[in-house]
């Protein structure tokens, strides 16, 4: 554990809390892509199957439970409790175009060919693109509420901080995982355009609005 990994995990946790709090407080999931949330639940489910096979630390186990539980709670809020407020007309990204290539790539490029390892690899590939339905939704409506922008910023920062963590780990332990690194870089790059808008607009008190 190092400071980059810890702040990365905290950014991830904060992102989830912002999202749940926003939906709960406003009693609405307007502007939130249910499809991205379904993909995240799939990511955590396939990655954390190792909860039963390998123990790392109480911290890891606790965080895995939190990520799993909150991802399903989010889906429940969007698709059941506040279903009426779900903006499905704008949430039209075809998630099979992300799931199937991620699965195919995981079958082809992995560290080891067994069930758990392929699913872990799939979760890494899928996570890198899971935000696309949400970004697509923002681009389709041309704007995002500030709170949704804060959520996206926290969620994007998490993998960016993990990249610093990987550099640090390589320098100090010689440890590296190419699959996680390449996917993590792709994931972070996808947020770059958003980061730019966030810093130049949202932080200056303006609404995140895309140029027409």
């Amino acid at each position: 554990m190092n400071i980059f990994r810890l702040t990365g995990d905290l950014a991830h946790l904060i992102a989830i809390i912002i999202l749940l709090h926003k939906i709960w407080k406003s009693r609405s999931c307007a502007g939130i892509s249910g499809k991205s949330q379904v993909l995240f639940a799939l990511v955590y489910t396939t990655r954390y199957l190792d909860l039963v096979t390998s123990y790392v630390s109480i911290y890891n186990t606790f965080m895995k439970f939190v990520f799993l539980a909150t991802s399903y709670a989010t889906i429940y809020l969007i698709y059941v409790k506040f279903k009426a407020t779900y903006d499905h007309n704008h949430d039209t990204f075809r998630i099979e175009f992300l799931i199937l290539p991620s699965l195919a790539l995981a079958l082809l490029i992995n560290h080891y060919f067994n069930f758990l390892e392929v699913l872990w690899t799939f979760s890494i590939y899928l996570e890198s693109v899971a935000i696309l339905p949400q970004l697509f939704m923002v681009s389709k409506t041309g704007e995002a509420e500030s709170i949704t922008s804060h959520y996206l910023f926290a969620l994007g920062s998490y993998r960016a901080l993990y990249i610093l963590n990987w550099i640090y780990r390589y320098a100090t332990e010689g440890h590296y995982d190419l699959i996680a690194i390449v996917a993590g870089v792709v994931q972070t790059v996808l947020y770059c355009d958003f980061f730019y808008l966030y810093i130049t607009k949202v932080l200056k008190g303006k609404k995140l609005q895309l140029p027409a």
């Binding site: 190792d50 965080m63 895995k64 080891y112 067994n114 758990l116 993990y162 995982d177």
Partner: peptide
């Protein structure tokens, strides 16, 4: 490197 290795990150 030895595989399968345990994944120690989240």
């Amino acid at each position: 490197k030895r595989f399968p290795m345990p994944h120690d990150e989240l």
